[in-house]
Amino acid sequence: MSSRGSWAAILVIYAAGVAAAAQLGKLSALLPPMQHDLGLDLTVAALLVSLLEIGGATLGLFAGVVISRVGARRALLAGLMLMAIAAAGMAATSAVAGLFLWRIVEAAAYLAVAVAAPTLTIAVATPAQRATALALWSTFFPVGFAVGSILAGLGVEAAPWRWVLLGSAGLTALLLLPAWHLPTPPEAAPRRAAKGGAHPLRAPVGAWLMAVGFACYTVFEVGLLAVMPAYFTSQRGVSASMAGLITGAAAFAAVLGGLAAAWWMRRDRPLGGFMAFGVVVPALLLFAVFTPLGGTWFWPAVAAMLLNAISGTVPAVVFARLPDTVGPGGDMATANGLLAQGGASGSLLGPPLLAAAASHWGWPAAAGAGLVASALCLLLLALAQRGHDGVAAVSRR
């Protein structure tokens, strides 16, 4: 593949990101049979799902520095290899502790791919391709979650969950060959450590507010997607494959929200009310998903898809407004790392939080937990949207 302007290379990088995000969706779909075979509590099982985000939650700010030292292409290859090994390891172990250890390895692999892939995309794309390539990259998580959830849900109907994990390992390993032939442009090559590195804690107050607000958003969003298969199988009586299909479709619906947000922002419309709509309406719809009323699975599934389509507008607005919180001449790399760590932290906390609420007080309590997270998200993002000057004024008081 050529070093510049290769759409084949851009698509291989995107496929690596989709494969990484699929590791979250696959385990969400496999939770019901894994719980049955291993006797896992719902909260423990949900924590196993969310552990994929532990690397980003603890090391997201600094992962970019490490990857700049080893090179983005090498980091991508290492991440794919570790993901394949971890999936095979989870399939082979019978101990719950072993599952958690392999999931932590998978978390490190996910972080490597999630940080290296956009870096490599920027380096490979030409200036004319870059906006389209990064717009494509921004959809990797919902698409990957949907692919993982749907394929794992279908697979577990035909084979034991351990064989599904082995299949996941094989599919991930297949990406190593095209990834091996990816170019290494100068911007993505290994670099020496720079003197006088940035201090993450010195990021502007607005960037911190936006990162914590985004964490609250991912508590709601990822928590919902992680527990949906368990809800639809236990409360609505659907099969594991149907629960995976519903969850995957709901995750993929978020892509529509991102496209709608891009259209809205291109028309230079006000973002305050638009963002509030994207936070408040999904929080209310969550009560239509986790409803105590009996009946068919259809309407809760429709509510889940509509909810995700609307809430998909939030990440697009957050990424678009982040430069405003940093201000002219600010350190965007530090702010982006902070935002990534906020999103990963929320993704780590969301599944066990919603699962614990459902286990102790019933499924409507999970909707209540999501509502609280959404209220905090709206408050923090509204404060952050005051912009660099407004936040600075608040911080000086």
Rank of each mutant, 00 (worst) to 15 (best):
A249V: 12
A249P: 11
A249F: 15
A250M: 08
A250Y: 12
A250K: 05
A251P: 10
F252P: 09
F252R: 11
A254P: 06
A254N: 04
V255W: 00
L256T: 05
G257N: 01
G257T: 12
A260K: 03
A261H: 14
A261Y: 14
A261C: 15
A261T: 14
W263R: 14
W263G: 05
W263V: 07
W264V: 04
R267N: 03
R267H: 03
D268M: 06
R269G: 07
L271M: 02
L271N: 00
L271S: 02
G272H: 14
G273Q: 09
G273H: 09
M275G: 04
A276D: 08
A276L: 13
A276H: 15
A276F: 03
V279N: 08
V281I: 13
P282K: 06
L284H: 00
L284T: 01
L284E: 01
L284K: 02
L285D: 09
L285F: 11
L285M: 15
L286P: 03
L286D: 01
F287E: 06
A288S: 06
A288N: 01
V289A: 03
V289K: 00
V289E: 03
F290D: 04
F290I: 13
T291K: 02
T291P: 10
T291L: 04
P292Y: 06
P292H: 12
P292L: 10
G294W: 02
G294T: 12
G294L: 08
G295M: 03
G295Y: 06
G295I: 13
T296H: 05
W297L: 07
F298G: 09
F298E: 07
W299L: 13
P300M: 06
A301T: 01
A301W: 00
A301E: 08
A301F: 10
A303F: 12
A303I: 08
A303V: 14
A304T: 04
A304K: 14
A304V: 08
M305T: 15
M305W: 03
M305V: 15
L306F: 08
L306C: 11
L306I: 15
L307S: 07
L307T: 02
L307F: 04
L307Y: 01
A309E: 10
A309C: 09
I310D: 01
I310W: 12
I310C: 12
S311K: 05
S311D: 09
T313C: 13
T313D: 03
V314G: 09
V314W: 04
V314Y: 04
V314K: 14
V318F: 03
V318C: 00
V318T: 02
